[in-house]
């Protein structure tokens, strides 16, 4: 940040691509700005569009270690920031004279949790705060200090400031509105399911042996499935899994029988399976062989 870097948006995009993440323009631009401006990024979007993956890719592309804080309901300071190691403190009190127990509030007795670890780290890191929408508002408020000033105040110890500037990525499935205060401190990126072309590139990047025609067919089917109102639409990772499964099975076309057998890789709810079988399965053309001949 402080050092005037010479990289451009295109560099960032290439960097991400090198580590296996095909970012679209907005994603590349925001990752670039995050590094340049030193601001946290809030990434929102449906489940399975690669929000978490983006953070991991940034960490790989910039060669910074990734520190991950997985949020869940009921997550509190003790698990996110720091905790006093009270067992050790008790032992210290018992082991020494009674008037010297003042120094039990020292860094030795501090158990650092992800946020403190990221702030106190001596090398620059990428901090991923995953699924921030799962926590409650109080927790969000607590994050504000970390996100805007990159510091943590510990009442007994004072303020711990960041030695290096971490890149912070927050992800949210958008299951509840985040507070204005938090949003204000972040850059915002909305990730959505990729276009057919991009998803095809992604699939082929991760399953390179797959035939181009099959990959296109597969992605088209996945897009068709996403059009339906499902409980859980298939994610990008699932299309990749599916591509790999098809490779393993040695399938060279996606007809209705192959689809019926492997559908469970992308659709994971009973009601969804019924719906998909009914709507998509039928469209896929019947007996294997006919289509292969036509294509061949």
């Amino acid at each position: 940040m402080s050092e005037q870097s010479t990289q451009t948006v295109a560099d960032v995009k290439q960097g991400l691509e090198r580590v296996g993440y095909l970012a679209d323009e907005p994603a590349a631009l925001v990752s670039y700005l995050a590094q340049e401006l030193g601001k946290p990024v809030l990434v929102e979007g449906p489940a399975g569009v690669g929000k978490t993956e983006l953070a991991k890719a940034i960490s790989r592309a910039t060669d910074r270690p990734l520190i991950r804080l997985q949020c869940y309901e009921g997550l509190d300071e003790a698990k996110a920031l720091y905790e006093w190691n009270y067992r050790k403190q008790l032992l210290r009190i018992q082991a020494t004279d009674e008037d010297s127990w003042d120094d039990i509030f020292a860094e030795d007795f501090l158990l650092s949790r992800p946020l403190l670890a990221a702030i106190a780290s001596s090398e620059p890191v990428v901090l991923l705060i995953d699924e921030i929408d799962k926590t409650d508002q109080e927790f969000e408020a607590m994050l504000l200090e970390v996100l805007s000033d990159f510091q943590i105040s510990i009442p007994e110890l004072g303020v711990i400031e960041a030695r290096t500037h971490p890149i912070v990525v927050l992800t949210s499935n958008n299951s509840r509105e985040l507070t204005e205060a938090l949003k204000r401190r972040c850059l915002y990126l909305w990730l959505d399911y990729p276009e057919i072309e991009r998803e095809m590139e992604i699939v082929r990047l991760h399953a390179p042996e797959i035939d181009e025609r099959l990959a296109r067919r597969l992605v088209e089917v996945v897009h068709m499935v996403r059009q339906l109102d499902l409980k859980k639409p298939p994610s990008i990772a699932e299309s990749i899994d599916w591509a790999r499964a098809l490779l393993l099975l040695g399938a060279d076309d996606l007809d209705s029988s192959v689809f019926a057998r492997t559908m469970s890789i992308i659709v994971k709810h009973r009601t969804d399976i019924d719906l998909v079988a009914e709507r998509v399965g039928v469209q896929l053309g019947g007996p294997p062989g006919l289509e292969a001949e036509a294509a061949g």
């Binding site: 631009l29 850059l187 915002y188 909305w190």
Partner: peptide, 9 residues
């Protein structure tokens, strides 16, 4: 502009 100004869908 969008990344810095518009913070929800």
């Amino acid at each position: 502009l969008a990344a810095t100004l518009a913070k929800s869908q």
